[in-house]
Design a protein around this nucleic acid. Structure first.
Length: 465
RNA sequence: GGUCCCUUCGUCUAUCGGUUAGGACACAUGGUUUUCAUCCAUGAAAGAGGGGUUCGAUUCCCCUAGGGACCGCCA
């Protein structure tokens, strides 16, 4: 048994969306679980639409989520000569033929098929014709001589046995009339060349598998194993496409979803291992298997992504979390001022409790990050004369404190509650509004200590003027 | 239209013929609390329909319905 090798083969004609990321993840996990290798192949043979920026985005996306491919990326366009060579061999050994039908002729047939409401399938006109009958004003394409009789069974590692009548596979084109190879030829040749043992891909490729299997057989190559995984659907049940918003990793990074959360979510989408929900990267390698992949397509559920992210925010260590937050703010929000960094770091322990995303953490920490407290009119009205007196008293009391701490703050607040015959809210709410500009937020002690004495005094002065 | 695939709570799923059909997210209610949250507890919530096979079907088979994918000289 040769060493397990899998591959992910996207075309750089658009940004990689998370459906592709999941396919890559499954391939990678499977190979690592089996002690094999995982390869990235860039299928850039469509010169018109392929762009380097997409290739870079694909590579970046994989790296971002923790997927590492073995060796260099395999660039398909560099292998075109090899694909053409194989096509010629196929021509020689009688598994392919030149087709001289004109475009118009083919179009005409398609049109007729449509009118009769029967599926179009190339009529194999040139399959057995002699080369000498060829018109000299037409550049031929090369077609693969597909099987006409019988049926082919695919032992799919996810879907089980799938059988299809051979005559539903037409004599597909392997070389265009400009001499360039088409997808099915290139993919099959490269998979063989790369010694891929397991092809795990979306089940939208299933029909291609039957074509590619025939190329393998015609070349007498040993067949790889296939696993067709169900596609991810959007919330309304359609195939995920590049046009969908919130579909690339960056879309999720943008709202503060961390890569490990997305990785964990994608892993559990259509795959399961008992009742386990949370998988570290190592655990996912350890437990991943093809048997756990479900057969039905699954829908994207943002609330689950959010809750997965919430779990990771609460569970990664704070130093790490801080670094993520700083990077997040730098890229998507604002640079954190140097003199705010320590305050923010020390406040993470309570800020993270109210956050599902890094964006939430950022929003919750705005009172620390910004120097100005903006209080809206309704909230300002809550600071009435009595509240102002409380604030003045509070400010006087802390002026003698060297540093704000819970043991010293607690008696002060308790005394104010007694003195003004109010409750905690009566003291806490005006303070919170004055210090953060909001009725909601962290605990009052946390706010006080996270801001520090100087900031607290400054902010309080402003409301009692 | 043709070919192929799929069908358990709203969502992701467990169950590999015998279960009060389990878990997670979301939702609802209650509790803790200093506001918002967190946290804890509790609750509601599912085998698409119809036939078989079997002592017994969510599980195996068939039909129907519904959903999806593919049907390019794109990949």
């Amino acid at each position: 048994m040769s060493k397990i090798a899998t591959r992910f083969a996207p075309s750089p004609t658009g940004p990689l969306h998370i459906g592709g990321v999941r396919t890559a993840l499954f391939n990678w996990l499977f190979s690592k679980n089996q002690g094999g290798t995982f390869h990235l192949r860039i299928e850039d043979t469509d010169k018109e639409r392929s762009k380097d920026e997409y290739k870079d985005q694909i590579i970046k996306s994989l790296k971002n989520i923790g997927i590492e491919y073995d060796g260099d990326e395999y660039i398909q366009s560099k292998q075109i000569n090899n694909h053409v060579k194989i096509a010629n061999e196929l021509l020689q050994n009688g598994h392919a033929y030149k087709c001289y039908c004109s475009n118009e002729e083919i179009e005409e047939q398609k049109k007729r098929a449509k009118q009769k409401k029967i599926p179009y399938i190339y009529n194999r006109k040139w399959r057995d014709k002699k080369e000498t009958e060829a018109p000299d004003n037409i550049k031929p394409v090369i077609r693969f001589k597909s099987k006409i009789e019988g049926s082919t069974a695919l032992k799919d590692l996810v879907q089980g046995d799938v059988q299809i009548d051979n005559n539903t596979i037409e004599d597909f084109i392997i070389i265009r009339n400009d001499g360039s190879p088409t997808y099915n030829l290139s993919a099959a040749v490269d998979d063989h060349e790369m010694k891929i043992t397991h092809i795990i891909r979306g089940d939208d490729h299933k029909i291609n598998t039957f074509k590619q299997m025939q190329i393998y057989e015609a070349m007498n190559w040993g067949l790889p194993s296939y696993a067709h995984i169900p596609l991810i659907h959007t919330a309304d049940g359609k195939k995920l496409s590049k046009r969908d918003r919130a579909s690339t990793i960056d879309d999720y990074s943008n709202i503060g979803i961390m890569p490990e959360a997305l990785r964990n979510y994608l892993l559990r989408l259509g795959w399961s291992y008992k009742d386990k929900e949370i998988f570290t990267l190592d655990e996912s390698i350890k437990y991943f298997n093809l048997e756990g992949i479900g057969k039905s397509p699954s829908k994207l559920d943002i609330s689950r992504i959010l809750s997965m992210n919430e779990h990771y925010i609460k569970n990664i260590n704070e130093k790490e979390l801080y670094e993520r937050l700083e990077e997040y703010c730098l890229i998507y929000k604002e640079k954190i001022e140097t003199n705010k960094k320590d305050k923010l770091k020390n406040s993470l322990s309570f800020l993270k409790n109210k956050a599902k995303t890094l964006e939430d953490v950022y929003n919750n920490s705005k009172y620390i990050l910004s120097n100005e407290v903006i209080i809206n009119k309704n909230d300002l009205e809550l600071i009435d004369e009595k509240a102002k007196k409380i604030i003045i008293d509070f400010k006087t009391e802390i002026s003698s404190q060297e540093k704000l701490s819970k043991p010293t703050l607690e008696p002060i607040i308790n005394n104010l509650i007694k003195k003004y015959e109010t409750n905690f809210k009566g003291v806490g709410q005006p303070l919170r509004i004055a210090l953060t500009g909001s009725k909601f937020g962290p605990g009052i002690y946390d706010i006080l200590m996270s801001l520090g004495k100087i900031d607290v005094e400054m902010r309080l002065s402003k409301v009692i003027k």
